[in-house]
Amino acid sequence: MNRRTFLKALSAVPVLGGLGAFLAPVLRYLKPNLEPGLGVPQGKVPPDLAEGDLPKGEPLPIATLEELREPWSSKFFVFTQKYPQYTPELAKAATVPGVAIKLPWKLSFPGYKAGKEPTDIVVFSRICPHLGCIFNYVPNWREVTAGYGGYVPPEERRHGLMACPCHLSIYDPADREVPGRVLSGPAPRPPRYFTYEIRDGVIVVTGAEPGGIA
């Protein structure tokens, strides 16, 4: 490298630096959230952002134990989470559809007493861990085979399954080691679970496993 090119290259540094200084706020402009407290309308309290952008939700009673007596019976519900955001309310609600399923056997489920006590009720978020569609719980595995691309479960898994319409990921809610195990399809991991408690015979969802958009 001769002196001239070196000097030329050197002169690029402030130019690039200037460009960066200019681009950073431009990119910031694209981000939907504002810093806490910025532009808070009169009389509103800024949301608590102590935990970053983590969503929060209210406990939600979803079903009585009575309703879920039969094995493989299920109940759909919608859990509402609030994300801090730049809106007039300073928070934005997003809904997370979920499903509670009664199993014929007990297993350790991380959403119930942190997996320390076995339970026969599992509660999953129905947001597909693949690309975010809403998957279904299908009590009859034959319908899964017919409608979701032709997957045939092995003998011991011929029971209620969860299946996603988008790219045909199929999950086993009753797997004893990993509840929600991926049986087929492109999903990289089991769906997220809800934490729940049983209060006077009612299943109350208290929160969701933390995680991103997917």
Binding site: V78, T95, P97, H130, L131, C133, I134, F135, N136, G147, Y148, G149, C164, P165, C166, H167, L168, G185, P186, A187, P188
Partner: peptide
């Protein structure tokens, strides 16, 4: 309807092949 995904989901014709590809591959 944000709480219900139809089966099957399709898109405009020029994205269909890509959709099929997405089923086959890790995300």
């Amino acid at each position: 309807d944000p709480n219900r995904t139809p089966l099957p989901i399709l898109s405009d014709w020029y994205f269909l092949a890509l959709y099929q590809y997405v089923k086959y591959t890790p995300p």
